[in-house]
Write a protein that binds this DNA or RNA. Structure first.
Lengths: 128, 128
DNA sequence: CTCCAACCTGGAGCGCGCTCCAGGTCAAGC
DNA sequence: GCTTGACCTGGAGCGCGCTCCAGGTTGGAG
């Protein structure tokens, strides 16, 4: 069950080996277990964190904030409120991001419609 | 109607003065008109381009591709097919981006639900 | 005519998030 | 035991998209 070689962890998480090492180096991923010889062994727990990091990264959270979250989690149960709040704030930002993306996507579609000769919109100021 | 000072163009477009100069320098914005003394005068047309650039930028198009699009537009009418295609490809990428964002947002919401003690999900591997 | 805020230029610098490298170590298979 | 590919470290480098700076010019208000 538990105990993945770096390459396996990379494959499963979708992060590169360098990124995994980087995440540990900057203290995002807590110190990863090692073999006697010093090679990393990733646990299911580590993998769980990586899934979370991918989620947060894909939704645009800066690394500094992920670090903060991870640190809070390491600090123990009494930080759950703060972690909850952090995620809620982030979710609100993601919602805003989704609205903006949708709006600009609509603009883009309008522009494309213009190229397809369908009316629907006056060309507006000429920009390509 | 036409003829905006740099600060006005910045205000209207939401780009900084430095960014406007940068966009011209790299050939994204075509050569902007100047006063006798060399100060920029932005036209409605320029503003139209800036609106488009904001749309493309907000949807994640790299500057190199925006440049390509702008160059095609400058090259004339016979590039409309290619421009259309470029925008369509981009729109497809944006759709994928929106799906990913939605998916990860759902994950995030699930995580938040977990903090709120509502069941709905097993905690899964412990990651904060 | 004077002033000063807004503008100009070329070029350096930055913040982010990795990515790559050199030079060395580890460990599984033969 | 030897080979070989995966792994280790510290640190430099990169690509993107700006952002800032110094030192000089412009141009509208008073």
């Amino acid at each position: 069950m538990s105990g993945y070689a770096p390459s396996e962890a990379a494959r499963r998480s979708g992060f590169s080996l360098d990124t995994l090492r980087y995440y540990e180096k900057i203290g995002l991923l807590a110190d990863v277990e090692r073999t006697a010889g010093g090679q990393r062994v990733f646990t299911d727990d580590d993998l769980g964190w990586l899934v979370l990091f991918r989620c947060l990264r894909d939704t645009g959270m800066p690394i500094a904030q992920m670090r903060r979250y991870a640190q809070l989690a390491r600090d123990g149960e009494h930080t759950t409120d703060e972690r909850h709040e952090l995620l809620c704030h982030h979710a609100a930002r993601v919602e805003e991001q989704m609205r903006l993306l949708q709006r600009q996507y609509d603009h883009l579609r309008e522009k494309i419609r213009f190229y397809e000769g369908l009316p629907g919109t006056a060309p507006g100021s000429e920009a390509g």
